[in-house]
Amino acid sequence: MDLVVLAVGAIFVNNLLLAQYLGQCLFCGVSNDLRNAVGMGVSVIFVIVLASLFTWLIDRNVLVPYELDYMRTMVFIVVIASLVQLVEIVLKKVMPALYKALGIFLPLITTNCAVLGVALLIVNQGHGFQQMLVFAAASAVGWALAIILFASIRERLAISHVPKMMQGTAIALVTAGLMSIAFLGFQGMTG
């Protein structure tokens, strides 16, 4: 039951994108097109879960026992960067179709603050193994949900009349703000 509450909280109440602002750069970059947004969403879910698993294991078994926690940021970023490279190589060999679909999105994810952000949040909140997996997956699903919803709205925006000064990123940010207000409504749903 606790795990369900944790998952709902991570998807809706503390939505990675709309409440914690993580993964913004990609959000503005690839949300023009629904197909790209879906591809990106799937890749991010995949990478966040894998990266959280590895960083959690390293943190528990190496950094904490040897009191190296001041190295955490550096170690995490190296782990995430090499993991993305590795995933790219393995996918290319094993599942060429999926690799083609995710293709250009994978390298972009390395500098996505959402990946490092989730890894750090998990360590800061002291989650156990099961909680860690649920939290990582739910946060990533929340991000994917937000970007897919947003991409659908932006496809509509492209054909509507926007005042000249608000065109482009400006109107996108205001739209995100309105979505964020809607997501505020979920607050208080979980304890």
């Binding site: 000064m165 065109q167 205001v174 703000g177």
Partner: peptide, 25 residues
């Protein structure tokens, strides 16, 4: 209150950006 919460950030940034576009224009 919402300006200090999550939505306020998006709205403030979007509106300031719009203003800057207007000045540039």
């Amino acid at each position: 209150a919402f300006m200090a919460q999550a939505p306020g950030g998006f709205l403030a940034l979007g509106l300031v950006l719009g203003l800057m576009n207007w000045i540039s224009r």
